[in-house]
């Protein structure tokens, strides 16, 4: 098969993960944030695949399947919520959601 060392593979996963993380942090559009979360989940899945490959186990893959299911469920609820937010606020700007906060007394 391939002889790319594991840590390089993990490096790839990490880079993808962190790109996703940056995306969550810097985008004000909720849809983009959700997308970035998907990137992160995908990167996490990649790690399981790497692990599964190296220990030659199916467990890693099983886990990724569950991750997929979870991503689907989360996206479903997430998108519904985004729609509701847009419905209520007429925007997808996450910084507009700041009604809940500590009021300085």
């Amino acid at each position: 098969m391939i002889s790319v060392p594991v840590h390089v593979q993990l490096l790839l996963a990490s880079i993808l993960f962190l790109i996703g993380l940056v995306g969550v942090l810097i985008r004000r559009n909720v849809i983009f944030m959700l997308m970035s979360v998907e990137i992160m989940l995908n990167a996490a899945g990649l790690v399981f695949i790497i692990g599964g490959a190296h220990w030659h186990q199916a467990d890693g893959q099983a886990m990724v399947i569950f991750i997929l299911a979870m991503a689907a469920a989360e996206v479903a609820v997430g998108l519904a919520l985004i729609l509701q937010v847009f419905h209520l606020h007429k925007t997808v700007d996450v910084d507009c959601l700041e009604e809940l906060k500590d009021t300085q007394s």
Partner: peptide, 21 residues
């Protein structure tokens, strides 16, 4: 990423990645 899955010996997951994700 699906390609990488494939390379890493997870063809089934590669397919699922494409189809579902």
């Amino acid at each position: 990423v699906a390609v990488i899955f494939f390379i890493l010996g997870a063809p089934f997951l590669a397919a699922l990645e494409v189809i579902i994700y």
